[in-house]
Design a protein around this nucleic acid. Structure first.
Lengths: 223, 223
DNA sequence: TCACAGTGTAAACACGTGTTCACCCGGAGG
DNA sequence: CCTCCGGGTGAACACGTGTTTACACTGTGA
């Protein structure tokens, strides 16, 4: 019990510096840069985390824990799956988390996979309640529909980052707030009114493969 | 006129090897790996392209040219923006291009930006025609709606890659074909029927910001 | 006071990278 | 014949990387 607070203090300082640098520069960021941000040497990082890969894993866990903690607190108003990010995008202190999560999405990290799985399962519950309450139409496959609504947010972010012609690390809270604001109108319009003037295309498609045509259909939704 | 065919032969061999390796391993792929794939030395790559960055640029241009050439030929049936990819995903010979394009999307390359801009402008035309013909409902902002429909394809791809728990380079034509097939039903359903059972949410939102509320609204659609 | 464990550092190591340099080979031109 | 020149190579260079090692400082316990 000597003085573990001091030790764990620099440890979390390294960890937060790593989250920030990974988010700004990508996961190729060097240990020396992270160490410099934390005000220590690269060897200290190794002492505390053993390896860069291990540091990356602990960053993933840390980000997931922080987001999860915030989520359970701000659960009430989230409905479309994107509103959480919308709220978070407005807050300066969440920018490192946003950047890190986006990096993880683009690099294929555990943070993105776990976060996405968790958010989708929650959204599935919300949607089921919405359908039961009569606010939402039922779907032929609720899980695929949830994945589709998430696609909108994710694809919108990717396109916006691409159009910005800047690196992910340079984008600030204003950018994300504007990005999500801009998405709201067309998304609500599509959700409320659809796109096709009639149902012929859908009906033709459903006829083409009458529900499941004997093949693997709905039980293997992903993977 | 000595024998430039032979020379330009190894040049394009290097270029195609680079497109393939960049697509499989990302843009961090080493020149030596690319050179080995092309059956030459790393120095030869430098002789032909000057630098790795220059090679990357020429790969971008090459991929754009090939896709563009194929697009203008298969223009007639493309409508949703994803159908092009759907077709391409089925063909083995386009796998390197798919992988490269996807890498460019995730890394923020010029290929993705240009390709996206081009495809969206085409989609805008198609949509205008669809609206005029009465097949599609008009939108409050056609450009944002186009961006939204593209979001669905892009976000769906990102989520599918993420769920695969494999690196982008290991995914084959079957994966992409299944991915797009799976997307078709929920997309058509959403396009045909919408999501909300009534229009109250949309109307509340449109009321909240009565068209443009005096702020920057529709003229700055991106960037 | 001494020994010790914890915390951190500077220097070195081993390796992979993009790039350059000196050189070779083969065929066209004098 | 020799010369030259484009296409190509292997070895080296300079550098940045993750990791390891030997060493300092600091405060606590006996």
């Amino acid at each position: 019990m000597r003085s573990p607070q001091i030790a764990s203090d620099t440890r979390t300082r390294i960890l937060e510096a790593a989250v920030d640098r990974f988010g700004r520069d990508g996961f190729g960021a060097s240990l020396r840069a992270i160490a410099a941000d934390a005000g220590v040497s690269a060897a200290a990082v190794m002492k505390h985390f053993g390896s860069k890969e291990s540091l990356h894993r602990e960053c993933d866990a840390h980000v997931l824990a922080v987001i999860s903690a915030y989520k359970t607190e701000a659960m009430k108003s989230a409905d479309l799956g994107a509103t959480l990010m919308t709220q978070m995008a407005r807050m300066e202190e969440f920018q490192p988390l946003i950047r890190y999560t986006m990096r993880s999405f683009l690099a294929g990290g555990d943070v993105a996979r776990n976060l996405l799985e968790d958010m989708r399962s929650r959204a599935l519950t919300w949607m089921a309640e919405g359908v039961k309450a009569g606010h939402l139409k039922p779907s032929r496959n609720e899980e695929l529909r949830v994945k589709l609504t998430f696609s909108i947010s994710i694809g919108w972010m990717v396109q916006s980052v691409l159009a910005a012609e800047k690196d992910l690390g340079e984008l600030d809270a204003d950018f994300w707030a504007r990005t999500f604001d801009e998405m709201l109108m067309p998304a609500l319009e599509l959700y409320a009114e659809g796109l096709f003037a009639d149902r012929t295309l859908l009906e033709h498609y459903m006829l083409y493969r009458s529900d499941p045509p004997g093949e693997s259909g709905a039980e293997e939704t992903s993977a």
